[in-house]
Design a protein around this nucleic acid. Sequence first.
DNA 1: TTTTAGTACCTTGCGGTACAAAGTATTGAA
DNA 2: TTCAATACTTTGTACCGCAAGGTACTAAAA
Lengths: 100, 100
Amino acid sequence: MRKGLVEYCILSILARKEAYASSIIEELKNADMIVVEGTLYPLLIRDKNQGLLSYRWVESTQGPPRKYYFITEKGREVLGQMDAAWTDMVKSVEMLKNRE
Amino acid sequence: MRKGLVEYCILSILARKEAYASSIIEELKNADMIVVEGTLYPLLIRDKNQGLLSYRWVESTQGPPRKYYFITEKGREVLGQMDAAWTDMVKSVEMLKNRE
DNA sequence: TTTTAGTACCTTGCGGTACAAAGTATTGAA
DNA sequence: TTCAATACTTTGTACCGCAAGGTACTAAAA
C-alpha cells in the first residue's frame, strides 16, 4: 500500500530543507515510515535525472562528504500535483469506507 | 501511489454487501478510482484462495450468470488490519507534510 | 604505517501490484 | 445463425520498493 508514496514523502521533506540520504531515512523513521537505502538512493538519482531534485557536495566533520539534495522549481510543481493526487486518494477511500 | 490500495477498497466494498466484478468496478469509478478488469479479477481470485472472500453464482436476467463475491470472517479480520494500516499511513504522511 | 570501525553512497536481483490487451463463454435479439 | 452485449479469464509488461552485497572515504587504534 505504498506505491509512489516514498517519492511523495521525499519531495515533501526536501521542499522544506535540503538533506542527505541518511538524514532523510532518519526523518522518515521518525514518522514511522521505514525506508531502506536500496529504495532511497535509486529514487533520488531518478528524481535528479528528471530534474525534480538537484544536489551539492558538502564536507562532513566526521566521515566522507555528503550529497545534499534539494528540490528544484520543477520538483515543486510535481510535488503540488502529488499533493492534489494524495488529497483525492484519501477522499476517495474515505468516501468508499463511509458509504452507509 | 496505489500499491495494495485496490485490495483494501475491494474488501471495504464487500464488507457492506456482496457484489460481482463489474459492479465493483462501477462503484470504484463512482469514487474516482479507476480499476480495470485485468487488475480486479486476479485480485478477487487471490483473495478467495486466501480465504478472505467467497462467492456464489447468481443468474442474471440479461447476460451470463454472475459471480457474487462476499467477505468471510477471515476477510473481516484482515480488513480490520488494513484499516489500521491505512490510518497509520495517512497519519505518517500528514505528520511529514505538516512538520513546521 | 597498517588495520579497523564508522559513515556514506551505489548496484543488482527479486517479488508483488496494477495495467494493457487479447481471449473465452453465455445470453438474447436481429 | 449471426451479432452485440455482458461477464469472466489469462498473458505479458512496467515499475515500485526491498534485500543483500559492494565501493569509497575518513579518522582513530594497533
